[in-house]
Each structure stands twice: as structure tokens, then as C-alpha cells.
């Protein structure tokens, strides 16, 4: 195998990475579009650090939403909502299950990138993309962790990418959000 092949291959892949047409990707179906941290910060209506106080489920129209009451400790953008909803749950003797929908744990602390619809319903951005668990390893600083999404994602240009999850310190995350919003890190609440 000629040594030049990797270089030649590199040009192939660079071309691919730079100019991928959506329709030509014969990978069928995706339910998520990958959002960068910048995009989540800019497109969200609110970004908060909060812990989940309680949860309940109820029907809105024909969809069951699980409502998570939040205790907000920091608001990095917008107005902190009292709750966030996730599709699915158990209500009135019925269960709705949507693979991919996250489950928030009461008592757990998160950073949440939120989006409120015209109907006034507040969702987590990108189903799970806007959900960062906060936990401190033994004796260490708080880490914000977002697990990889199961569904393959397309980026904003329709190119297929893989989500490898994110982990960073809380302070680092806060600084990144501030930068995305064009604000000084210390100015975020």
C-alpha cells in the first residue's frame, strides 16, 4: 500500500467534510439536529442552573408531558421558568413512551438550555442536548456532563455527525455561554 494513500485519502475526507450535500447522504432519518454550545446559548429563551424539586405528569391535548418543577439557583439568560416539560410519562391511567426523551431526577442539579414555545411550554433544547448533569467528583470541582444522544444528528448544514457527549467544568461552561451571548462571564447570574 503506497505511503501516499493516507494523504490522498485525507484530501477525500477534507472535501467530504467541507461539502456534504444533505440529500446525498443516504443515511435515512434523524430526529435531532446537532446544536453547538453557541447555538444552544443563542437560540434558547433561558439558560439556568437548577435542581429538580418534584415531577408530575399530565395531558396537554393528546400528549402526556412530565412537568419538572425547578429550584433555580442561577439564571444565565432570560427569565427562569418555574418548570420544564419533557414529552412522555404516566397520567390518568395512561403511559406515553418516547424513546430518547430524558428523565430528570428530583434532587439532581442541572444546567438547562431551555426554549419556550408560543404556547408557553418550556422544553429542553434538542431533547437531551440542552441537559447537563452537575456532579462533583470526590473532592473536585463541579463538572457539567452531557451524555451522547442516541439518535444520529445532522448538523445545521445537514451533514451527518456523531454526538460524542460533552464534559467540562461548570465554570468553563458558564464562560462559554457568556462568550456565546457576548456577555462577560461574571455578568451571568
Amino acid at each position: 500500500m503506497p505511503l501516499s494513500r493516507p494523504a490522498k485519502l485525507g484530501s477525500f475526507l477534507r472535501a467530504w467534510l467541507c461539502a456534504l450535500a444533505l440529500g446525498a447522504v443516504a443515511a435515512p432519518a434523524a430526529t435531532l439536529v446537532q446544536l453547538s454550545l453557541n447555538q444552544m446559548a443563542q437560540q434558547s429563551t433561558a439558560v439556568v442552573r437548577a435542581s429538580v424539586v418534584s415531577s408530575s405528569a399530565s395531558f396537554t391535548g393528546s400528549t402526556i408531558y412530565t412537568h419538572y418543577k425547578l429550584k433555580v439557583t442561577e439564571t444565565w439568560k432570560g427569565t427562569a421558568p418555574a418548570e420544564v416539560v419533557v414529552p412522555g410519562g404516566v397520567a390518568n391511567g395512561y403511559r406515553q413512551s418516547f424513546p430518547g426523551a430524558p428523565l430528570l431526577q428530583p434532587g439532581t442539579e442541572y444546567v438547562l438550555f431551555l426554549w419556550t414555545s408560543k404556547a408557553g411550554i418550556t422544553h429542553v433544547m434538542g431533547l437531551t442536548q440542552g441537559l447537563f448533569n452537575l456532579a462533583a467528583p470526590a473532592g473536585g470541582a463541579l463538572q457539567a456532563t452531557r451524555v451522547p444522544a442516541g439518535e444520529t444528528m445532522l448538523d445545521a448544514a445537514g451533514r451527518q455527525v456523531q454526538d460524542h457527549g460533552l464534559q467540562m467544568g461548570l465554570a468553563e461552561l458558564k464562560a462559554a455561554v457568556a462568550q456565546a451571548l457576548g456577555a462577560a462571564a461574571g455578568s451571568l447570574q
Binding site: 444552544m40 395512561y94 403511559r95 406515553q96 413512551s97 418516547f98 426554549w115 414555545s117 433544547m125 434538542g126
Partner: peptide, 19 residues
């Protein structure tokens, strides 16, 4: 159904079952 989904979410589906 078609609805306003939050950025990053394009669709989802599943059953509603009796508990």
C-alpha cells in the same frame, strides 16, 4: 401531528398505552 418543536428536535414518536 406537526408542532413547534424546540431547536434541535425534529420529531419523535411512540405509543400511549393503558397503564
Amino acid at each position: 401531528v406537526f408542532e413547534d418543536l424546540p431547536p434541535g428536535l425534529l420529531g419523535y414518536g411512540g405509543p400511549t398505552s393503558k397503564a
